[in-house]
């Protein structure tokens, strides 16, 4: 991979090579991959976990399987959002961003790169978890649509951390709040009352909705994908503007 990158001469490739060097030298980022990978492994063991829970405490998890799979498939996205969010916050605390803003890459280029990585990674993990585990049926066309939302959601998470916090300590407090966004998923799955629509402004709400409707082969899936995309892009643009206005 470094071979391909070293042939490119764009500023983004320079940054990517910088990060690769960082990964090689600093084992942290490699180890940071373990979180998402651990979640992925957990998915493959889900049937055995279900069996264990059933035999030990006679609790049947299988009715909750689709909820668990959807929930877990979004966690790598959240983790990547946090990892890249904290890289940006660290670099901001160390004034790296000020330095980059005066290179040809500019602040926008830097941000684009730092957002594309978590987007690609989280969409990749999402699709892998859904299809490689084959624990649940998911229409591939619908899944592709949802994966775009998952990608945007990772960017939203990263931006949420860096747009509102001034340093890594605040970023940590905000990362706690970021987790709340995912509360929309159990609400969609388990709260039968119409009040659950109150959480429709939270991006994961639409992922859960699309999933539920896709499972029911309901035509509402298309409206979910449409409104989900609108909400995701809307939130993304809002956070982007907050971030770019900052400093």
């Amino acid at each position: 991979m470094s071979g391909i990158l070293s042939e490119m001469k764009t500023p983004v490739s320079v940054l990517a090579r910088g990060d690769l060097k960082l990964i090689v030298r600093d084992s942290t980022l490699v180890m940071a991959l373990f979180g998402p990978i651990a979640i992925t492994c957990l998915i493959f063991f889900l049937p055995s976990i279900e069996a264990l829970v059933l035999s030990k405490i006679s609790f049947d998890l299988t009715p909750y399987r689709s909820f668990i799979v959807v929930f877990l498939s979004l966690i790598p996205g959240m983790l990547f959002a946090m990892i890249y969010g904290f890289i940006i916050l660290d670099e901001r605390d160390e004034d790296v961003i000020d330095f980059i803003s005066i290179t040809p890459l500019r602040k926008r280029g830097y941000l684009t790169y730092k957002l594309i990585m978590p987007m690609l990674l989280s969409a990749g993990f999402f699709l892998f978890i859904i299809f490689a585990s084959s624990l649940i049926q998911f229409n591939p066309v619908h899944a592709m649509g949802v994966s775009i939302m998952v990608a945007i959601e990772a960017a939203i998470g990263t931006l949420f951390l860096v747009a509102f916090s001034e340093n890594k300590v605040e970023g940590l407090a905000f990362s706690k709040v970021l987790g709340i966004m995912y509360l929309a998923i159990p609400l969609v799955f388990f709260w039968t009352s119409g009040w659950h629509w109150l959480s429709a402004f939270l991006p994961p709400f639409w992922i859960a909705k699309a999933f539920v409707h896709s499972q029911m082969s309901s035509a509402w899936i298309w409206s979910d994908l449409f409104f989900g995309m609108v909400v995701h892009i809307g939130v993304l643009i809002f956070f982007l503007r907050v971030f770019l206005r900052k400093r």
Partner: peptide, 11 residues
């Protein structure tokens, strides 16, 4: 050295 560093080690 970094927040991510701390998280990985402590997690």
């Amino acid at each position: 050295r970094h927040v991510n560093d701390y998280f990985v080690k402590s997690l």
